[in-house]
């Protein structure tokens, strides 16, 4: 009767719509990576050689590790822009030779430094209710200033051998740094999914005031999150210093912004409790792949920087556009 006549076309047209909705809900990074790979396949098939892909993966490893920390912060409605400053200090501690300590102690010192920076960030954000953007940006300036002042006395030297090995060596064809990335990523993904901490992060991201009013340890969660974030930044700096082989005053300068872009492209959104760890990791690869693709098109350093800026801006716009949608 009339009912079925009306319903039938609706049923038939449902499938594509459901599929479309599923696709639209996927992190941009999945679709973007597929599109980039297809594009490269047409224009620059050379880039798709397994060997080159692994190289790009190795380039993406430091960013990928920093992204783990950044996405954690964003899920708690916070932000960590202090990565650049952390990387700079870590690079200086490791390569300046200012501290004549064995390698293992230098590494331990760097990790301790990461804990302190994360705790200071969290302190200002929770106790003084300062904006995380301002706190962590100020942190970059302070740390950068300290390193600049110190480096007048001693220029950075070369990286410790163990980190050089991690940054550069490969087992079989597989780069060690990529293994470090996976070794950080998988347990963290599991931890966030299964642990009480992960639940608290989602709760705070969804409604910080409710978290506060229902007795979730809000302050402690923010502390742990920011300390973890800084520790991932330290680990990321290890890989950068190891890969480059020596310290420099520009180590990790674009880490914070790139990690932010990757988190956004990876589908993590402020306060929805949504967003895994895999989406942002794919996004880190996607960013590196796109930079390489641009290089293969003969774009120089300035052009690459402009393109990089444009990608980040586009990511932010896409994020804002999606942010408006989920209410529907």
């Amino acid at each position: 009767m009339t009912d079925s006549i009306i319903n039938e076309p609706a049923l038939r047209s449902r499938w594509p719509r459901v599929l479309g909705a599923r696709l639209a809900n996927l992190p941009i990074s999945y679709l973007g990576t597929v599109a980039l790979l297809l594009g490269a396949g047409l224009a620059r098939p050379n880039l798709l050689q397994p060997f080159l892909l692994l190289l790009i993966l190795r380039q993406a490893a430091p960013l990928g590790i920093a992204v783990i920390g950044q996405s954690l912060c964003i899920r708690m409605l916070s932000l960590d822009l202090s990565f650049g400053g952390i990387a700079l200090v870590v690079s200086y501690i490791l390569t300046s030779g200012l501290l004549r300590l064995p390698e293992s102690e230098l590494i331990a010192l760097c990790l301790l430094f990461g804990v302190v920076v994360g705790a200071v960030n969290a302190f200002f954000i929770t106790r003084l209710r300062a904006s995380s953007v301002i706190v962590t940006l100020a942190m970059v300036l302070i740390l950068g200033g300290i390193v600049t002042a110190l480096s007048q006395y001693r220029a950075p030297g070369s990286a410790p051998p163990m980190l050089r090995y991690i940054g550069q060596a490969r087992i079989g064809i597989f780069p060690v740094s990529v293994m470090v990335w996976i070794a950080a990523l998988v347990p963290m993904a599991w931890f966030l999914r299964r642990s009480v901490f992960g639940r608290f992060v989602d709760a705070i991201g969804a409604n910080p005031r409710a978290a506060w009013a229902s007795g979730i340890p809000y302050i402690r969660t923010i502390y742990v999150g920011h300390i973890l974030s800084s520790l991932f930044a330290v680990l990321s700096a290890f890989l950068i210093v190891g890969f480059v082989g020596f310290g420099s005053l520009s180590t990790g300068a674009d880490l914070a912004l790139n990690s932010l872009a990757a988190v956004i492209l990876g589908g993590v959104t402020f306060g929805s409790g949504k967003g895994g760890v895999i989406g942002p990791a794919v996004a880190a690869f996607m960013l590196m792949f796109s930079f390489n693709l641009l290089t293969s098109f003969g774009l120089g350093e300035p052009g690459k920087e402009m393109a990089q800026g444009a990608i980040i801006a586009l990511a932010a716009i896409a994020y804002a556009a999606r942010g408006a949608a989920p209410a529907a």
Binding site: D202, A210, S214, G273, P326
Partner: peptide
Amino acid sequence: EGLYQPLSIAQ
């Protein structure tokens, strides 16, 4: 102050 609106009932 009460609920985590974007999360599920179970969460």
